[in-house]
């Protein structure tokens, strides 16, 4: 019987990454569809056009989603994405969207708590380092 347990963290990491990738790409493609989500205090604090802020946010989500996907700086990427998503939950508020985003934030946080898994680049690099030390 195959051991499927080892694929569980990989599945979680890939699934969460794909969510952030989707939203990141969507923001890059149509920033005007997302400017309504940008809180007023950010627009007033950073004197950049709303579309530019959305591009930056989209790029941030894509970049860290890719890091999470390949498992490079897994803990850092997952923590930043967790905080980002919790911030979004406070903006969106209580409702269907907020509830789902909250659950996604918790799932992302669980990746942070677990750290790297067998299929992370971090794990492979750590194994290489250990081999070098022993050798």
């Amino acid at each position: 019987m195959m051991n499927f347990k080892k694929y569980s963290p990989l599945l979680l990491r890939v699934g969460i990454s794909m969510v952030f990738l989707w939203f990141g790409f969507s923001q890059i493609k149509n920033p005007s569809n997302w400017t309504g989500m940008m809180p007023e205090y950010i627009q007033s604090a950073i004197s950049l056009p709303p579309n530019t802020l959305i591009y930056i946010n989209g790029a941030f989500e894509i970049m860290f989603a890719v890091l999470l996907l390949i498992g490079f700086f897994t803990r850092t990427a997952s923590l930043l994405l967790t905080l980002h998503l919790f911030h979004i939950v406070t903006i969106v508020g209580y409702g269907a969207v907020g509830a789902r985003d909250f659950a996604l934030a918790l799932a992302t946080f669980s990746i942070f708590l677990r750290g790297r898994d067998e299929f992370c680049l971090d794990e492979l690099l750590a194994e290489k380092r250990n081999k070098k030390k022993k050798g």
Binding site: M18, F25, V66, L69, I70, L121, L124
Partner: peptide, 13 residues
């Protein structure tokens, strides 16, 4: 790792 990442990114894009 890289094949999964490649497929996932392309699928979403």
């Amino acid at each position: 790792i890289f094949i999964i990442a490649f497929i996932a990114v392309n699928a979403v894009a």
